[in-house]
């Protein structure tokens, strides 16, 4: 699997916020997008997810042009900064949602099995029937992660997945996220403000500034 972002431009009301961004991702690679506030990281991630349209440029996944493909058909898992858990569904329903709405998806029993497996994986097996409001920040983050992974995504997208957590939880969750991503064998793009986080997690770090990627390096090189 390779994923290519080719020369993406995007303007909001006349201001260009992405000025030709290109990036490519190898199979199973973890890329961190680092950059100052307002540099266009979220905008880029949304375009990749299909939650925003680029003005020009293209997205190519395994040789297939997916620029115009609707978000639902891209099969990318997205972890939102706010987690965006479904507040009226239990943890289990949240995680199983993507499977439930899948056309010709798995049977109910199969969904239950997968959900249980994922709950095991994120180490929250006892919380299946809780609602998001009854969870701690770290628990919510892990549920959001499990929900994104449940559909066996081709690519994992995370927008500042740890920003709502305190420093201690952040550090302990890092390795878990990395392990989950490895085990799922998917490529990942993660937006972050935190250099240490990028260093600890990413295979490569792309630094964005004012709508451009200014450097792409491995953690050692950037440091």
């Amino acid at each position: 699997m390779t994923f290519e972002i080719r020369d993406i431009h995007k303007s909001f009301a006349g201001t260009e916020v992405l000025k030709g961004v290109s990036l490519s991702l190898e199979k199973g690679e973890f890329i961190a997008l680092l950059g100052p506030s307002g540099s266009g990281k979220t905008t880029l991630l949304n375009i990749v997810a299909g939650l925003a349209h680029a003005d020009s440029g293209s997205l190519v996944f395994d040789g297939e042009d997916i620029t115009r493909q609707p978000a639902g058909q891209r099969h990318f898992g997205m972890v939102f900064q706010s987690y965006a858990l479904f507040r009226h569904m239990t943890v289990a329903q949240n995680i199983g949602f993507g499977l439930k709405v899948m056309k010709g998806g798995p049977s109910r029993a199969e969904i239950d099995r997968r959900v249980a497996e994922l709950l095991e994986m994120i180490e929250l097996p006892g919380l299946a029937d809780r609602f998001p409001a009854q969870l701690s920040g770290g628990q919510r983050q892990r549920v959001a992660m499990a929900r994104a992974l449940a559909i066996r995504p081709r690519l994992l997208l995370m927008d500042e997945p740890f920003s709502a957590l305190d420093a201690q939880v952040r550090v302990s969750l890092r390795s878990e996220v990395r392990a989950l991503q490895r085990r799922a064998g998917v490529g990942a793009i993660m937006v972050t403000h935190d250099r240490a986080e990028a260093d600890a997690l990413a295979d490569r770090i792309a630094i964005m500034d004012q709508g451009r990627i200014v450097t792409i390096e491995t953690p050692e090189q950037v440091a």
Partner: peptide, 10 residues
């Protein structure tokens, strides 16, 4: 450069 027709709503 602009898209030829307005992008559909997400």
């Amino acid at each position: 450069m602009r898209a030829a027709r307005p992008a559909p709503h997400i």
